[in-house]
Design a protein around this nucleic acid. Structure first.
Lengths: 182, 182
DNA sequence: GGTAACATGTAAGCGGTTACATGATTAG
DNA sequence: CTAATCATGTAACCGCTTACATGTTACC
């Protein structure tokens, strides 16, 4: 019995669903949560979040309640049983997970032979520094992930470590090549 | 004196330009070259390539010449001096390179606490295996990259090693967590 | 004789980004 | 008093993917 209402949701819908699943939230808070956690492998804009919330509520996967702060409007959402089921089904589906990155930095590096060696080396350095910056940002988030871990959500910490490992590998590989060039 | 014709090209345009820069090519060959090299951090479809080639030729950055094989049509392109300059300028530009990934696998993993531990572990395994497969594919490409290296294009080999390092880091991190769970 | 690969394109639709619009509250 | 943050949305545009259309050559 696979959810009767669901007209197959898009990935952004599941991101919204998943974030609400981690705790009662407003659209604004969802955006913030994404920025603080999965923004290194996913982004979402307010123009996606608010229509998505409306759709998900109409589909019976979320329930929203107005809880203004003073005169400032605010609407908080939580998962319904159907929403929880839909999220779980998505996470459990056995379809192969496509892997697709889209990074202009790597593309530039690939074509770097088209410019002078010194210029190419500068590009390599820029790519390395970019990963070093991400690394610093990701490490700064660790406390939040560890706090979530203590409350039973261990996978955010795992994905954080995965991100750190990824960028560390990039930095190491760049350094190996940089030391070989000059 | 920054190229007078260029109305600022899109990333896919530069991908086409860069691929033609690596050797005289048809649209079909560009697609193949992308699949064999940068597809792990960029993709491009025929529906983008052919209009792009037309635009770039009109802008004077490429020249095309019909070279049919028998009755089978074919049009080969090469860089003009202006095209070469445009590519070099793009590669040398000092604007910060945005870093943005988009990977549903990571998103699923992030939310994995929403399902039973055994299901979450299955997800982790799926993500690990996905990287193992990429790793195998990337390693299979090594000969091509090394051939290019011998002919003076060293950066394709570099980006390949970067991709391998990235996926190896993912596999290692996944294994660390998998051994901790059961 | 049929399938896969070679080769080039067009059209429609959709999903996402950018920009815009509005208003309340807090901090400096 | 001003800027930043909180908070929610809409509209237009654009670029990309999907599907389609067409024809040739090589291979089994």
């Amino acid at each position: 019995m696979t959810g009767m209402a669901s007209a197959s949701l898009s990935p952004p819908d599941y991101v919204v669903l998943g974030m609400v699943g981690l705790g009662r939230r407003s659209g604004y808070e969802i955006k913030q949560a994404v920025e603080l956690s999965i923004r290194f492998f996913w982004t979402i804009s307010p123009a996606q979040i608010y229509p998505s919330l409306t759709r998900l509520e109409r589909a019976g996967l979320l329930t929203g309640r107005d809880e203004p702060q003073g005169r400032r409007q605010r609407r908080l959402y939580e998962l319904t049983a159907a929403g929880s089921t839909a999220l779980a089904e998505w996470l459990q589906s056995t379809e192969p997970i496509p892997f697709e990155l889209r990074d202009i930095g790597m593309v530039k590096l690939f074509f770097a032979d088209a410019v002078a060696p010194s210029q190419a080396a500068r590009l390599l350095t820029a790519v390395r520094q970019r990963s070093e910056q991400r690394l610093a940002t990701l490490r700064a988030i660790r406390p939040e992930a560890e706090a979530a871990e203590r409350q039973g959500d261990v996978y955010p910490a795992l994905t954080l470590e995965l991100g750190i490992a990824f960028h560390q590998a990039m930095v190491d590989a760049c350094e190996r090549f940089e030391s070989r060039l000059p």
